[in-house]
Design a protein around this nucleic acid. Sequence first.
DNA 1: TTGAAAGCGCTAACAT
DNA 2: ATGTTAGCGCTTTCAA
Lengths: 334, 334
Amino acid sequence: MVSEPVKTIERTRIYDVAAAAGVSVATASRALNDTGRMTEQTRERVKQVAAQLGFRPNTMARGLLGKRSFTIGLLTNDTYGRFTLPLMAGVSEALVDRGVSVFLCTIEDDAALAKVHVDALLDKQVDGIIASGRRVDRRLPVDLSNLPVPVVYAFTEGPDDSVTFISDDEQGSREAVQWLVSRGRRRIVHITGPESFASVQVRAQAYRTVVGEQAEIHHGEWSEAWGHEAVARLWSGADTPPDGIFCGNDQIARGVVDALRERGVTVPDDVSVVGFDNWEIVAAATRPPLTSVDMNLRELGREAGLTILALAEGKEVAPGIRRLPCQLVLRQSG
Amino acid sequence: MVSEPVKTIERTRIYDVAAAAGVSVATASRALNDTGRMTEQTRERVKQVAAQLGFRPNTMARGLLGKRSFTIGLLTNDTYGRFTLPLMAGVSEALVDRGVSVFLCTIEDDAALAKVHVDALLDKQVDGIIASGRRVDRRLPVDLSNLPVPVVYAFTEGPDDSVTFISDDEQGSREAVQWLVSRGRRRIVHITGPESFASVQVRAQAYRTVVGEQAEIHHGEWSEAWGHEAVARLWSGADTPPDGIFCGNDQIARGVVDALRERGVTVPDDVSVVGFDNWEIVAAATRPPLTSVDMNLRELGREAGLTILALAEGKEVAPGIRRLPCQLVLRQSG
DNA sequence: TTGAAAGCGCTAACAT
DNA sequence: ATGTTAGCGCTTTCAA
């Protein structure tokens, strides 16, 4: 497309609306914003004219008055987008009807880049910032605590007095293990990621709570390969192999299921397997498809979006950590 | 975080800078924007003072002058983000140093939602819009051809006179098949997705060009399951099974590799397999890891970003389809 | 109930 | 080379 030197499409301004409706701009503004007092008739007429002319207020002008810009920033260091995208979808979904658009800023553990992005956001007078990440127990490489705009944290660690949204991994894990128990599984082991992850600790603890004494936790990498290896170990030892496996994430679970099939162990008849994350691409492609814990990130995003909006509008929001429930998605592996 | 009723953090305005530097706002503005004529000394002094005071120009005010808003919109219907995220990363990377932030708008094949997003973008006076999608041969459910801002298309079909960026699937496929040939593979088949996809056509045609007469193309779904099924068919028929397989995407390739391993066919010793997309999560987890064609979406995003910027600055850009080269990423399957 | 006018922070045309 | 000033489109006092 050759650039259009003559942008003939002149936007209708509030002046045009006022003129067409036979009122002053002040009245027009009040009518359109449902403020001030005036005859319902005038208000209606102005609104009608505005609609007819396809009037859309200029956000820049509005923003210049020190009011809201109807934009927010979503900061994330989750390059892969595995967690960010569902979150973003939720945020966007919650805000788009209210005319708020979302700047997505991917900072890859790079403090300098993060600062550049945050500064750019502040220059644009965003109404708020949602900080997000790929690890619940890590902070973004940038300090957001003294910004002139509200900040909420989603799926990443924030300061003590911040509003933080995370999924309730404890509840999700508990339900997953309880599900295995309810299916008659008696020897349930937990194959999960590195101990250093907070989410590993929480999920393991929930598992322990349900199975009690017999708890048996195997730590490794977050990979399919580790799932294979763990199965090899469990089935080559002297102990009776488990009949139920709760995995720390879907990749491990897929490795486990594949390894079991290769050994001639039938899932879920001989062994039930449950994953975590409900990462469609992994869970659905596994044979049989994985039963998995979904963190409801979209819903989490919705909540975060609504909260940042409330803060932007000056409402009070109590600080603290909000844990949103996970949901066990049943497929065929467990 | 309790909302801060007193936003005490007053931003320094250009007036403050001007006063502190002992010049007028006009001079300050010119100095900071490297326009107008003045002693290098004055310019330097103003810049220094501005830096000292941490001055950041208010984008709203700037945008109100009918100039640029330093924002662009990225529209996509790729909910999963498989294609959009690398693209977005490239766009962002190209623009962030120039102070441009990106609104990400996910419209899910919903025309009404698309319109809401586009209107919101126009209200915010975006400098341009990049339209993107999950299918190269489908248009977004919204007409962007008469917008008051420039539009470029990336990884989605645009009008004839538009600037469109897509990956050179023909070249990528050709290199993939030629690689198989160079590895001494003599009977190479192509297992790919539904015929209705333009990318399937292009990749198949490239494959045909290289292997000539012996071309053998199997269409199915874009799934691992189809990879399994295709292998079952090829190895159960009367014909000699292939020694090289070029797959339409990584999921099919993974299915193929898994199926071969289950049959005791060794990859890559007996059969070489090459995928398409280089989707890390799939390609790296396959045993052995997949050699695959990468569409360089990040680079594509960079180009699209730079182009929309050029258009926003009023530069002329010739319309047409730009095909950016793919790259064969060697792992171990081929 | 409605209107006139000031002003948000910046840039650019027009002085000097 | 630098300063004065008029707006950009809107909201919001203040006045009528």
